[in-house]
């Protein structure tokens, strides 16, 4: 087997399940630090943090996967990724419950996501399921985690703001 048939995944846990991203897309792993919340963004985008002078948006993977948010714990980590979107290369972070490992998987052991996953709305960013040592690892397509540009002015929030003293 040649090396091209293998890929390395950085894996982590979200709500008890294990997920993986292509390690070549990982810029760094950071501990949790509270981001500056950003207005007019989907709730799973928690805000922005400062990484060596770059303003980097952070998404909570739990919420992106449709699970309820959870307070940061001592194991909460931010995986900083290089993400391609709208034809640009950007740096963005995802919040995960805990880091797991670096795993090498054979291409042959990666299955397409089953229909049920699609039904749950993961299709945009689940690239496949890898089976490693009898564990299931959902491989994320990191480019799909963040929403594309939105031009929603979210008037509801603004009306609420004006009404509030």
């Amino acid at each position: 087997m040649t090396i091209a048939d293998q890929s390395q995944l950085l894996t982590f846990f979200v709500s008890g399940a294990e997920y993986g991203v292509d390690i070549l897309r990982v810029q760094e792993i950071r501990g949790w630090s509270a981001p500056m919340p950003m207005p007019r963004t989907p709730t799973f985008v928690k805000g922005v943090i400062n990484i060596r002078g770059d303003i980097v948006p952070i998404a909570d993977l739990r919420e992106r996967l449709g699970m309820s948010p959870q307070e940061a714990t001592p194991t909460t980590a931010i995986v900083v990724l290089r993400i391609e979107q709208d034809g640009r290369s950007t740096v963005r972070g995802i919040v995960v419950d805990a880091m797991s490992d670096v795993t090498t998987v054979d291409a042959a052991h990666i299955k397409p996501p089953p229909d049920v996953v699609e039904a749950a709305g993961f299709a945009a960013f689940a690239r496949g399921i890898a089976i490693v040592d009898e564990k299931l690892i959902t491989i994320l397509d990191v480019d799909g985690v963040f929403p594309a540009a939105v031009s929603n002015d979210n008037h509801d929030t603004l009306d609420a703001a004006i009404a509030a003293p």
Binding site: G31, W32, S33, T75, A77, A98, M99
Partner: peptide, 9 residues
Amino acid sequence: MDPIEPDAV
């Protein structure tokens, strides 16, 4: 503010 690292040595 001293964030605690996951699995930090």
